[in-house]
């Protein structure tokens, strides 16, 4: 346990020293501001772009507050996810290339404590980014478009965050045996494949973590009454996926020979 605490402190220090704890939350806040703003000013933007027929401008209907908030969370699923994966891609492989792995691995420390500390750092980064980002997005949506239920926003953000955490855990797993950019590519590829499969076969795969973004949007727009047992299935499978990723990453890191 003591090892895990020390490694967590080291990971937090690294988040601060590499400026990740500064620039990634700023990016999330910018994304959170931009979505409600573009929704609100969409008629102006269309008018300024010139070649939009007036009939189309007339028919533009402002999406509701809940839909706008769901779109803002959707931004975190694309741009935000990309940034988080790129930031986490070197977390295990970087230790090998920078040479710190040799220094650590010759000591009697358990692999799981190293990997778990890295995962905790990723979780803290995600919580900070999503907390600030979603709060600002909800504030702007409330100011510009309409009232939101704070409770629903918090739960919907949590559900969305779990999906992002799944992909971060996959990134950690891939970075245990692949070079950073390849690990990021594989993690994004599996995220895309999961979501794609999920949109093709929504009825069969409603229990997978990839359905979490849809549940998050549904919770915002339709309220908590419409949520069924499928959400529970998704939450459980997401938890299992994360645990498997952490265990897998620590097994691979422990076994694999170091690359020169």
């Amino acid at each position: 346990m003591r090892g895990m605490w020390i490694f967590s402190q080291k990971e937090m220090l690294e988040l601060v020293r590499s400026y990740k704890l500064a620039w990634i939350p700023v990016v999330f806040i910018i994304l959170g501001i931009m979505q409600p703003l573009t929704t609100y000013y969409m008629p102006e933007i269309l008018k300024a772009s010139g070649n939009v027929p007036p009939a189309l401008l007339e028919s533009y209907e402002m999406p509701g507050a809940a839909a706008t908030m769901a779109q803002a969370l959707g931004q975190y699923g694309t741009m935000g996810l990309l940034v988080l994966v790129l930031a986490g891609m070197n977390s295990l492989s970087g230790e090998r290339y920078s040479g710190t792995a040799e220094l650590v691995l010759v000591r009697p420390v358990s692999m799981i404590s190293i990997v778990f500390a890295k995962w905790v750092a990723q979780l803290i980064l995600l919580a900070v980014c999503l907390g600030f980002g979603a709060a600002v997005a909800a504030y702007y949506t409330g100011q510009l478009i309409g009232d939101l239920s704070w409770m629903l926003v918090i739960f919907a953000t949590g559900i969305y965050g779990l999906w992002l955490l799944c992909i971060q855990s996959l990134t950690l797993l891939f970075s245990a045996f692949l070079r950073g950019p390849v690990a990021a590519f594989m993690a994004l590829l599996s995220a895309a494949a999961l979501s794609l499969l999920n949109s093709f076969l929504p009825n069969w795969l409603e229990w997978t973590p990839a359905s979490l973004p849809a549940y998050s949007a549904q919770l915002l727009t339709e309220g908590s009454k419409s949520m069924g047992s499928a959400l529970t299935g998704s939450l459980v499978s997401a938890g299992l996926l994360i645990i498997l990723c952490i265990i897998g990453a620590s097994l691979i890191t422990g076994r694999k020979k170091l690359i020169d």
Binding site: Y19, K20, A87
Partner: peptide, 11 residues
């Protein structure tokens, strides 16, 4: 974003 992701050597 490009600087932080690709520019820094110790990402």
């Amino acid at each position: 974003i490009a600087y932080f992701v690709f520019g820094r050597k110790d990402i």
